[in-house]
Design a protein around this nucleic acid. Structure first.
Length: 732
DNA sequence: AGCACGCCGACT
DNA sequence: GTCGGCGTGCTC
């Protein structure tokens, strides 16, 4: 083995720079037994960078100019061959630079060159000894007693200093005098305790469970299309149980873990096993520890957000992607991967089942079911025997509104509150009012840096841009025409909150939006207030629409359902449908039938019938027809090429020249739209332009992507603006 | 990507 | 005379 290594002393490494080729270096000292996948520190230009060995070789075309590496950072591969294979595939599919891809998927802790020894904890154990401590050594005795309480497992340093302040010196003394010994190891995951038991599945759930359960040892993709409250999670839980019995690991992906503490709680109350969470809210050390625990097969259930797919599983048995339609599975910067789609690749590589679940499944998944790539499972009754909510379409036409509310809406809210139920008022817009307008000349205050109107925030009595966060002072005179007839237009969550407090002073309300709920602690506290029934009226933006479970909620009011009906993006009608179905699903659980009230200026629009009169599948099917007519995704594959620059013309020209440079043979297979300004043309002083590439689904774009990457890496204008290649973009 | 080098204009 | 703007080239 070492002979073989000696003949392959040239290392091909992937370096985190925007360059396509890997770089060759010579290795001086002994190589690790298996160098491929190890991190190395290399000299690069005038810098030192952390790179990853992806191959060894006996030759290099840079033979004469090879530099030696500085050192190996691992003595065994940090990246398994499985992860190298997956990341290479993802890198090529999403058209990125491999060195940067590897850098991105590495936990921050390891990206900084640290290694696992820095994650170890010191554990103290008692030594069997006949010696006794001096009678006066109270603190020593106290520390020793605490350590003695855990004779077999020992007690960690961290745990000790939490219990007894500043005992480091004492510990040292105890160790010197042989009263205790210490050992270093990874933190142990506390097994969760079972406090909740499996519920009997209803016939519909049972059929799905049986179907999936009969083939748990092969690659299969299942879509569970189940309305809110239909009991998808119970099916997941019972399937997970099966996988755990096989001693295998389970990965559960959720859109935003910080927003769903209830979900983690639900999982940990059902299994006596090692459960960890993986998301960006954790600090680097905790995250790296979880990563290692997963790699060592010590973590059995991994609940995480999109980045959790880059964990190295030892014995993965199943993947679950909850709320699979959610666009937060798509990374929006740098390496633009889709965690749901890559999960399917991971399942395939591991020959294991994967379950996608949602009440508002994505078009992509429906299409894959239609083409029999995925297995389709429908859950159409609520598991708790609660009737689906009663839906009222409330026409606002020609009505005199009270601060955005129809009087019938206010009456309805009263009715529900009197019955001691909770009411949710959904307004997908934060701030007090989205516009500040001159009623004389119609001038609307826009952001200096963005092509957006500024939102009035009453709490600070200033205008704020929701795209770049810029602030502006209120002027009581129009800058354009000098009129004093100037003020706010439209509704935001802050205003609704004010109106509700004035209208229903007897009932406590809570507002959940990014302005009032900046950190996770606040959200959890507010969710608690809601669950205990302390608050009667909930006012919220999207934050409240996702995945939460409010047992006492009986009425959902959707203030402004028309927004999104005529969006610029071809996906906006789909997103609006998902949003309304998701928020409507919050009402009526635990046996009570809920009610949903939709305020609209378009009561005759057929969308309301489609949304609530038929299945979500039928609705999506009607959208699919439209996409088919226009050859839009997901009927076709799409690549979005973005360019942004301080100079609008420059970004526009850049894409135009790019378009004209596409080789003829590659042009044959694609359709090009644009370049055109992005829907939000200017954000933070940068002008954004898009070029859309569309292509028939069964034509490979691999060579096109490769060409684009080469073009960008070698084009001198590409360095003067910021560009991205977004494969399967979820927004424009 | 990120950094050095080098060329040019505008300040002490 | 020098500071710093950014255009260009290079990385095994």
């Amino acid at each position: 083995l070492s002979n073989k290594n000696n003949n392959n002393r040239i290392l091909k490494v992937a370096i985190p720079v925007a360059l396509i080729d890997c770089f060759d270096y010579s290795a001086v000292d002994n190589l690790p037994k298996n160098p491929i996948g190890c991190r190395v520190l290399v000299p690069f230009n005038n810098r030192q960078l952390i790179a990853v060995v992806i191959a060894t070789s006996s030759t290099s075309k840079y033979k004469d100019t090879l530099k030696p590496i500085i050192k190996f950072l691992d003595d065994s591969p940090f990246f398994s061959s499985d992860l190298l294979k997956l990341s290479k595939w993802a890198n090529d599919y999403y058209a990125y630079f491999y060195g940067m891809t590897l850098n991105q998927i590495m936990p921050g802790f390891y990206r900084q060159g640290k290694d696992e020894s820095q994650l170890w904890q010191t554990i103290y154990y008692v030594n069997k000894t006949t010696k006794t401590l001096p009678a006066k050594a109270h603190k020593m005795q106290q520390v020793l007693n605490l350590i003695s309480q855990n004779p077999t497992t020992g007690i960690s340093h961290n745990n000790l200093i939490q219990n007894i302040k500043s005992c480091t010196a004492i510990l040292k003394k105890l160790k010197e005098q042989n009263f205790i010994k210490s050992d270093a190891c990874l933190p142990v995951i506390q097994k969760s305790k079972i406090t909740d038991f499996a519920k009997k599945l209803n016939p519909e759930q049972q059929v799905i469970y049986d179907n999936i359960q009969q083939d748990l040892n092969n690659f299969t993709v299942h879509l569970i299309d189940g309305i809110t409250g239909s009991g998808k999670t119970e099916i997941y839980l019972q399937l997970i149980d099966k996988i755990l019995q096989q001693q295998k690991q389970v990965l559960i992906l959720v859109p935003e873990i910080g927003l769903t503490p209830q979900l983690v709680q639900r999982f940990s109350s059902r299994f006596a096993t090692e459960i960890i969470t993986m998301h960006s809210g954790l600090n680097q050390t905790i995250r790296a520890t979880g990563y290692l625990q997963t790699k060592q097969n010590k973590a059995k259930i991994i609940i995480g957000t999109r980045s959790a797919i880059w964990c190295q599983f030892k014995n993965l048995g199943m993947i679950i992607v909850d709320e699979e339609h959610d666009s937060s599975f798509k990374q929006q910067s740098k390496f633009l991967y889709h965690a749901r789609d890559l999960s399917v690749v991971i399942a395939k590589n591991n020959n294991i089942p994967i379950i996608l679940g949602s009440a508002t499944s994505s078009m992509e998944s429906y299409l894959n079911c239609q083409s029999k790539k995925y297995n389709y499972h429908l859950l159409k009754t609520r598991a708790t025997k609660t009737l689906p909510p009663r839906v009222t379409i409330s026409a606002l036409n020609n009505l005199k509104l009270y601060e955005g509310f129809a009087s019938s809406t206010l009456t309805k809210i009263c009715e529900h509150l009197r019955q001691n139920n909770q009411v949710l008022i959904y307004i997908n817009r934060r701030g007090f009012a989205p516009k500040y307008m001159c009623f004389e000349c119609g001038e609307i205050k826009t952001c200096r840096h963005c092509s957006a109107t500024m939102t009035y925030h009453k709490a600070i009595n200033r205008l704020r841009c929701h795209f770049c966060n810029a602030l502006a002072d209120i002027k009581d005179i129009c800058e354009k025409c000098g009129s004093h007839n100037i003020g706010v237009v439209g509704l935001g969550s802050e205003k609704i909150d004010n109106v509700i407090n004035d209208s229903y002073p007897a009932y406590k309300s809570v507002r959940v939006d990014r302005d009032t709920t900046a950190n996770k602690g606040q959200l959890e506290q507010k969710l608690n207030q809601i669950t205990t029934g302390d608050c009667k009226i909930l006012i919220g933006t999207q934050m409240l629409a996702k995945g939460h479970h409010f047992p006492k909620l009986s009425l959902v009011v959707i203030m402004d359902a028309d927004r999104g009906l005529f969006g610029t993006d071809f996906r906006s009608i789909e997103h609006m449908s998902q949003e309304i179905i998701q928020v409507a699903g919050r009402s009526g659980r635990e046996g009570k039938q809920g009610e949903v009230l939709i305020q609209t200026m378009q009561p005759k629009n057929q969308i309301w019938d489609q949304l609530f009169g038929s299945s979500y599948f039928d609705l999506i099917y009607s959208y699919i027809k439209i996409r088919t007519q226009h050859s839009l995704p997901p009927i076709t594959s799409q690549i979005l090429i973005r360019a942004k620059s301080k100079n609008a013309k420059f970004a526009d020209n850049f894409l135009e020249i790019f378009k004209n440079n596409i080789p003829h043979d590659l042009k044959q297979q694609i359709r090009i739209l644009g370049p055109a300004p992005a829907p939000m043309e200017k954000i933070a002083n940068l002008y954004r332009f898009n070029l859309v590439i569309l292509c028939h689904k069964n034509i490979s774009l691999a060579s096109f992507k490769k060409w684009v990457l080469h073009y960008m890496a070698n084009n001198k204008y590409a360095k003067k603006l910021s560009w991205s290649i977004d494969v399967d973009a979820v927004n424009s």
